[in-house]
Design a protein around this nucleic acid. Structure first.
Lengths: 155, 155
DNA sequence: TATTGTTATACTCTATAACTATA
DNA sequence: TATAGTTATAGAGTATAACAATA
């Protein structure tokens, strides 16, 4: 049986989860002594692996100048480091250091706490559903970013 | 059967979803012509209903001064408005306007797109699981925020 | 000619702290 | 005495645009 209001409930839950994620980001950042953008970069590199600075900038919604400043800060704090692209000498890749991975381990425990009330047998299926939702949402955001700002007019 | 790596998969998926949510926030904000903190406030008021400025500040991770500036901007743009607390004359409550609710309707479609690959019969159960995860994560963040910044030392 | 990344300037949001009003 | 909110100052990250190096 399909519940008629399931869609509204799902939208509301996703709103709540996004807000909770944003708050988690702030508190985690304070806790480990980094800025929000810096832990976002750490999280991004954890999920997607090593990336070039421009890719990092695009996917995090930053300008290339801001990306330079971001990676500068990460290097200064020993969280991540630049290394040259093997074949394209224009490009600079970014990877986490041991210190960066320590932040990841710390955040892992916080995130795990989010699942404490989920039945272990449901964890696998839930994880896959979360992944699908994340992919669709990221896809939609990328599409809308293409259209540029100000495409929406109230009233 | 319980999969041994389900927990790791879940953590990774949640990381991806949080990142996707943060990107959604940026792109939506650009799209409707608001700042990130402003659409966070709109989302917060949608999920939790009318709130006092200080509650808004605390739950969004802002200082009281930043909260004043935030609500000033929301009022100037006609997104939300202040109104007096019925009994406590110190307090100021904040609510969305019609214009603010138009932003909510717009964002609703984006979020719905996140569920397009979910089987309709699974939408209700998924919604409830998302809610549980959001609550636990918010709870953990509130606890950690209590301890204050810098409690974590790398190495 | 296009792309990756750096630099310099201006801008905006936010934290801090002092202050007013109310409980 | 404690709480809700405002104001003023200083500080930090980011966008923009111009620039250098490589493809």
């Amino acid at each position: 049986m399909v519940e008629p209001d399931a869609a509204e409930e799902a939208v509301r839950s996703l709103r709540a989860l996004i807000l909770a994620g944003e708050r988690y980001r702030q508190v985690l950042s304070d806790y480990v002594g980094l800025w929000v953008t810096e832990t976002q970069a750490v999280s991004y590199l954890t999920v997607h692996g090593d990336r070039g600075q421009n890719e990092l900038a695009t996917d995090l919604g930053l300008s290339s100048g801001a990306s330079t400043a971001l990676v500068d800060r990460l290097e200064r704090q020993g969280i991540a480091e630049r290394y040259p692209h093997p074949s394209d000498r224009r490009r600079t890749l970014v990877r986490l250091t041991d210190r960066g991975r320590a932040v990841v381990r710390e955040s892992r425990m916080w995130l795990l706490a989010g699942f404490q009330d989920v039945d272990p047998s449901e964890l696998g299926p839930l994880a896959r559903q979360l992944n699908v939702v994340a992919d669709r949402l990221a896809e939609r955001s990328a599409e809308m970013a293409e259209r540029g700002p100000g495409a929406f007019h109230l009233e």
